[in-house]
Computed example of a mutant assay.
Amino acid sequence: MNIRFLETFVWLARLRNFRLTAERLHTTQAAVSSRIASLEQDFGVRLFDRSAREVALTADGSKALVHAERMVKLMREMKEDMSDREVYAGVIRIGVIESIVHSWFPDFLGRLHKTFPRLQIEIVSDTTIHLHEQFSKGNLDLVLQAEAVIGPQVSNLALCEFPMRWVGSPKLDIGSETLSLADLAAFPIISFARNSGPHAVIERLFSDSQRSERTLHINCIASVATMIRLATDGFGITAVPPAIIQRELNEESLHLLRVDTEFPALVLIASFRSDHENPLTETVARIAQETAADFALNWGHEIARLPASLN
């Protein structure tokens, strides 16, 4: 049962007016009416007698109000308890992709520990596809990844965007001239996992046979660390966020390549359930959002960017 619907029921019982209730809850009269209708359908009774000017509780509505007020009060107390940094000592399960692990994730964990020092954190690092699967099964409370999770009572927060660049080892002796896709096709391509967003981009970019007469060799790898290692060893070229290879760029074990076709940025998103079962998840997602934004502001446009809109 949606706690917001019960809260709407309680306020309508107090104010006895759809317009005033909508204003109090910062929503529309239609939304208030829809929530009440949903509750009445769930309970199988009419909660209000409606007139042109005001509404009044039915006998069944009066009985339901006692329980609704108790549940709303309990949820309010729970939220207050969750906001007590020293008291909260629960467990949160976070799924995260490697591109975040290798960039601003340590800063995020530091902030999270400072905010909730007694919070126990369980971390799963995997591909976006696998994280979505675990999230849908209820095995994760929050996922930090590259695609929005679409579903009922799921919220998505834009974190930041990572520009993607083609890179290669000096061992390949590629040079500094501007390369075409046909030039890139001469080398083995080291790609993110199959069916991932970056992998789909690579397939789309090279799908036009007129751009390259060469046979393209795409090697799909689920581990970002392995991708970077293979690239530095000269196995092939890869498209990755410069945000995760700063050490390799500084040590010149990898070089940014000049390519005439832009690779779309990697958009990072925090997804969590918004059904009030665990209100802490939104707070943690907001901390991730703040950390990602600070990372983008500190490192600059070539490394990370603020998303088009921050929810």
Rank of each mutant, 00 (worst) to 15 (best):
E203L: 12
R229I: 11
R165V: 14
S180M: 00
S176P: 00
I237Y: 01
T178R: 10
L140W: 10
D141Q: 11
L216T: 03
I202S: 15
L131E: 11
L205T: 03
P163L: 10
Q153F: 15
G236P: 05
I190L: 15
L140Q: 08
T238N: 08
K171P: 12
R214M: 13
G236N: 06
V201F: 04
L216F: 08
D173C: 00
N156G: 06
L205I: 11
S176Y: 02
R165T: 14
P170F: 00
L172V: 00
A148H: 13
I174A: 02
E203H: 03
E213C: 01
H132A: 07
I189L: 15
H132D: 10
E213H: 08
I174L: 02
I218A: 03
S212V: 02
S191H: 03
V149K: 09
I150A: 05
D141N: 06
I221E: 13
C160S: 14
G197S: 13
D141M: 08
G236H: 05
D233S: 09
N156R: 05
S169E: 01
T226W: 02
R165K: 15
F206C: 08
F135L: 07
I190C: 01
S209H: 10
E147W: 08
C160N: 11
M227T: 06
F162D: 06
T232E: 09
L184T: 03
P163Y: 10
S136E: 14
S209D: 10
L184W: 06
S180W: 01
N156C: 13
A148E: 15
S207P: 08
R204Y: 14
V201Y: 04
L131N: 13
E147Q: 14
G236R: 01
P163V: 06
E147N: 05
A222N: 11
L159S: 06
H217Y: 06
P152M: 05
T215M: 04
H217V: 09
A148T: 02
N219H: 11
L230D: 03
G236C: 01
P163A: 07
L131D: 02
R214H: 15
A182S: 15
E203Y: 08
R194L: 15
V167L: 03
A193D: 14
